[in-house]
Write a protein that binds this DNA or RNA. Structure first.
Lengths: 344, 344
DNA sequence: CTGAAAGCGCTTACAG
DNA sequence: CTGAAAGCGCTTACAG
């Protein structure tokens, strides 16, 4: 193992104290009135020796690590991969590096990861939580780790949270289906139904149909048996008391499971079935028919979440009346909701 | 800001030295013959006070941080998102947390990120590099940061590298196209043509056609203007000296750009065009026609890369004759390569 | 303008 | 069985 270059090495090579070197390298040369010449020699030596400060030492001293933890349910899910990328760019631009962790919607995993990261002294945590209430995470925050929720909230008086207009988006999809003449919706929800985003998407959707005195059929799909459950459900539609004429997939994975089931069973039987999805994917505008979907404002969500975190970190965050920030979504109307025939 | 619990706090609360507390908490109680009773009291106090060791301090002392850096070109690219997820699971299981960073195939960014991470004293680096040669990265490794390449190598005598059988996969696709009667291939490559994976996929493909005395047309697509370039190219196929009857997309983004161009221009004109892709995506088996693709052994690649890194970390890595490890790929034959009609 | 010294919270010989 | 002490590499009052 090679010995790394330290402040002392530079100090010796230049013939000054390491105090001076530290000051200069941290850009405080001016402020402390260190002569331009000395500064230059120090900087030159640092370059020469390829000095890179030991972050662990610096962190120990300053209490800051320049790291952020991002907890999502699954980094390989397209939505979170996109979110992670945007967040990474924001963070890197400010000199942070980010730990990205997947929780699989599992509170135990989530807590273990949060604990690990807070033990690593991350300067902040952004989490798409699977918790049912805010208690545990509030303790983390109150223990000194700035924390903001993303994509899901835990109530208006708890933690700062940045979410999409889930209820509104659900309603948009419902209204659009109604306008197209669909009257027998089947909602594909998730077994993790306590998660605010999932719950609100469904509520918004169901309420809108209710106004027209139409009741939605709801089926919750297992998070880990998604493809299997969806396949089963779609194969047995005739057993439902109301045979649906359209489907609402509550997230992108569900829509993909639906489409791949359609594919496997021969798409013809489903020609007339409307389909909408909460989450937009690149391939939704490639496939035939193209899929009507709600697009989330991922960029804006990341921006705001990062802002809030920054504010918590530097202590400038002022309490607002509500700390849930809801950002508008966009409805992308495509072919999957064009009614082919007026079937009673 | 809340004061965090330290070893000293525990020591005082139990009435022993912090040496003892440290020993016990690190599971060396037995080894140092500390009485069971004392151990229990220490552990109880640690629980009670919710003690979490300050990693920065520990790292400073031990030189280990328990962190790994993963550099890929873009975490929002499905292939890397998947790779990152698998790698994360392996790392987390061993108590590591991983920094995931995107380089955008940009060497400058890549070097900046690698420098940041090595300054954070990561225990190791796994990188899907955009470098043209191994020099710079070898310096990093020789500077004390264990490092293994993934997905791309930099020559057989340089750095440990785990890659897919890119040349072999390219050849498989070519052979399959030939068997299906395609004779005028257009290869969609990338402007980053120095990258080993891209180069080898194309070489393997081209060589196979060459055996049949067929020359491939090759066009390199800009990494940042992908959709635009592909659109342009496909709109002007008639200007090529040989009008192609099949396309080879060298990675998944290219294939998606092709499909979305087909879609935009009305897929009918392209009905007879064969299409193959290096990289498989979930939607390839949903879309119509389904897409023939080569599937990479992501799981195995991650496993091996992690293993090699671990070996470098604990110093047990022995030099092999070559340090490029090539893992077999799988050809998934689907509808996009079924010739509809024998056109001359 | 510059340096000696303390201290961040750990781990680990060393001494008893 | 247990504790005092050194030291990892920084930053930052403090003193001159």
């Amino acid at each position: 193992m090679v010995k790394r270059v330290t402040l002392d090495d530079i100090a010796q090579s230049v013939g000054v104290s390491k105090t001076l070197v530290s000051l200069v390298l941290n850009g405080k040369g001016q402020q402390y009135g260190i002569s331009k010449q000395t500064c230059d020699r120090v900087v030159a030596a640092a370059m020469e020796l390829d000095y890179r400060p030991n972050q662990a030492a610096r962190s120990l001293r300053t209490g800051k690590t320049g790291t952020i933890g991002l907890l999502v349910s699954d980094i390989s899910n397209v939505f979170y991969a996109q979110l992670a990328r945007i967040f990474e760019d924001l963070a890197t631009a400010k000199g942070y590096n980010v730990f990205i962790c997947s929780t699989d919607e599992n509170v135990v995993k989530e807590r273990r990861l949060a604990t690990m990261l807070s033990s690593r002294q991350v300067d902040g945590l952004v989490v798409s939580t699977s918790e049912r209430d805010a208690e545990w995470l509030m303790a983390v925050r109150d223990g000194g780790t700035p924390l903001v929720l993303i994509d899901r909230h835990l109530g208006p008086d708890a933690l700062d949270a940045v979410v999409a207009a889930n209820r509104g988006g659900g309603a948009m999809l419902a209204r659009h289906l109604l306008e197209q003449g669909f009257t027998r919706p089947l909602v594909l929800g998730l077994s993790t139904s306590h998660i605010s985003s999932v719950a609100e998407r469904i509520e918004g959707f169901v309420e809108e149909f209710k106004r027209e005195r139409i009741a939605c059929t709801l089926r919750n799909i297992g998070f880990n048996t998604l493809q299997y459950d969806v396949g089963n459900l779609l194969a047995n539609l005739q057993t439902l008391s109301v045979i649906p004429d359209c489907l609402f997939a509550v997230n992108n994975n569900l829509a993909t499971a639906v489409l791949s089931t359609f594919r496997a069973k021969g798409i013809k039987n489903f020609k007339k079935m409307g389909l909408v999805c909460f989450d937009d994917l690149p391939y939704f505008s490639i496939i035939k028919p193209t899929i009507t979907a709600v697009e989330q404002p991922v960029g804006e969500m990341c921006n705001l979440a990062f802002d809030l975190l920054q504010q918590q970190i530097d202590g400038s965050r002022v309490k607002a009346s509500s700390n849930i920030f809801e950002l508008p979504v966009k409805l992308n109307i495509r072919e999957s909701t064009q009614k082919k025939s007026k079937n009673k």
